[in-house]
Design a protein around this nucleic acid. Structure first.
Lengths: 254, 254
DNA sequence: CTTAACTGCGTAGACCATACGCAGAACTAG
DNA sequence: CTAGTTCTGCGTATGGTCTACGCAGTTAAG
């Protein structure tokens, strides 16, 4: 039988219900040997250790000492497992920052916290999103971010747009970092070997007549010095928060 | 024999050499029935029509009337093909915008152009990057972007950081759009059906006591009205360019 | 005790990338 | 003209993926 949608509206997707802990233990049948949380935990541990590519149904099952098909009693398809893994990674939101006029410090703290979470679980940004966020972890993060913007005079729609922009920035940074690290590992070279080599290759391939601006970058030595792991993140975050600040100033002044 | 690295430095990766058209036609052997550009074009057409998941070696070969393994005479591995596909998508850079003090208009034009390119080829952002950009298409885009920042007083390193930030924003927006569209297609619902349903689900699941800020967003009706397809992009781009403008003003004032 | 509902899982089908080696084509050297 | 070289196309095989299906055994209700 289909889940009914009575007057409360459409039914929750099963994976969402599972994430919120709304599962009725069946009265009959043998006691389950596995549990959904243990499956998700095993998959997360595996992804942390060996990357998302190592997370196959058979591999997760092996990690649990079960057979591949046993997992399908708990999860309808692999992407449901992925959704639950992502929500697990977003457990423990940063908490509401200091309230009041400290929106900028609050959002910065929020962004650094998301960045830290994504560094603990770099595979999260490789999971294709399957819809707008509905799971408890992701909604908690959103809640904590929105609270930072409480006293700013921004409209509710603008607050959502700011959060979308901010999380997009953090996630894109994490994606880039993860991909670079993966590529570096695959090629067997470390980053401090790659960058000087990259500068040489670009210099060889980029004809000065056709790429003058790029040539200036090369000649300035920008591609030689490898910047600290946080420098680029700090730069972008500052620009982004400056942009939000300009918006807020415009609102409160007008 | 390995490609030598003489005094010019390390050798170009073969796929990079191919992208720049530096391939010597072998004097012996039968005339090739396929060409690398035709293979790349077929793969791009396939990805445009059916998504990146449809691009398997056997499928591309079938599209060309060849056998699967024939492709491996032109490409060492599938990810080389993907690299060439991405560069093909970045062919035709936007061109240098108006020079002079119009950096903001120039960068905005650049961002819209990249967005348009990524909407023509939504699969591009799904291809994991395999290193810093070395192919002609991507470097041309970078060149055109850097030129917009010529008269701004920014340092070369800052210009690169701005371009990284900007392309990251556009790519993340494209990734989100592509994933949403994919999820919408997979579930068989259109966006104007999904959003109201989403609002109901969030409202059901987000306890007002635990999610007060989120509740305010819901009550304000933000999740009801579906915004225009460009609204979110415009908002983020404005914030981002405002942030860059603040940086530039600080540089020229100081 | 019967029956229903559930768990675990073995098998099999339909894909995927790609390593390897063979057959034949096109050119060069003699 | 012939032999050798080197390339192209591709058939086969290996080991991996997800998951549909159905069977066997377990638990509890009636």
């Amino acid at each position: 039988m289909e889940p009914t949608d009575d007057e409360t509206g459409p039914a929750l997707p099963p994976v969402v219900a599972a994430a919120w802990g709304l599962r009725e233990r069946a009265p009959k049948g043998p006691r389950p040997g596995l549990t959904l949380p243990s499956i998700v935990a095993a998959a997360v541990a595996l992804a942390d250790a060996e990357g998302l590519a190592a997370v196959s149904m058979s591999r997760v099952a092996k990690e649990l000492g079960a057979a591949t098909m046993a997992l399908y009693r708990y999860v309808n398809a692999k992407d449901e497992l992925l959704t639950l893994m992502v929500d697990e990674a977003y457990a423990e939101p940063p908490g509401p920052g200091g309230t009041g006029p400290h929106w900028r410090a609050g959002l910065a703290r929020w962004a650094w916290a998301e960045r830290a979470a994504l560094q603990r679980h770099p595979w999260v940004v490789r999971v294709p999103i399957s819809g707008p966020p509905l799971t408890p972890g992701q909604l908690s993060w959103l809640e904590d971010g929105l609270r930072c913007l409480a006293g700013t005079g921004l409209g509710e729609s603008e607050k959502m747009s700011v959060m979308l922009l901010l999380t997009g920035y953090v996630r894109n940074d994490a994606l880039l970092t993860a991909q670079i690290q993966e590529a570096s590992a695959a090629s067997g070279r470390r980053m401090d070997e790659i960058m000087p080599e990259y500068r040489q290759l670009v210099a060889r391939v980029a004809d000065p007549a056709r790429f003058p601006a790029l040539r200036e970058v090369i000649d300035a030595g920008v591609l030689d010095q490898e910047d600290g792991p946080d420098d680029e993140f700090v730069f972008g975050l500052d620009r982004l928060l400056d942009g939000v600040e300009a918006l807020i100033r415009g609102r409160t002044t007008a």
